[in-house]
Amino acid sequence: MFRRKQKSASSAKDRLQFVLIHDRTNLTPEQMNRLKDELLAVLAKYVSIDGQGVNISVEQDGREQRLLADIPLKPAETLRRR
């Protein structure tokens, strides 16, 4: 929350980075969060997800946006019991 130590230009850059991702994808932060939740819910029907390590983000690749999802899976039940 408090970024007093940060120079104003670098907070401008951080804030712009955030805003541009939402402008370019036409997704509000709220919609983005819902997208993540729903994505995980769908995946959870098939695999068991290790919620701790989940990382879903939109990355910039030039002027294109890329949805990157890094979703660690838990070992299948049968394996784990051994």
Partner: peptide
């Protein structure tokens, strides 16, 4: 202002806009 860290640098802007 750029030197004080109070203005986006040309590199920053190019980075952000990617053109």
């Amino acid at each position: 202002m750029v030197k004080r860290g109070d203005m986006l640098t040309p590199d920053d802007v190019v980075d952000l806009l990617a053109i």
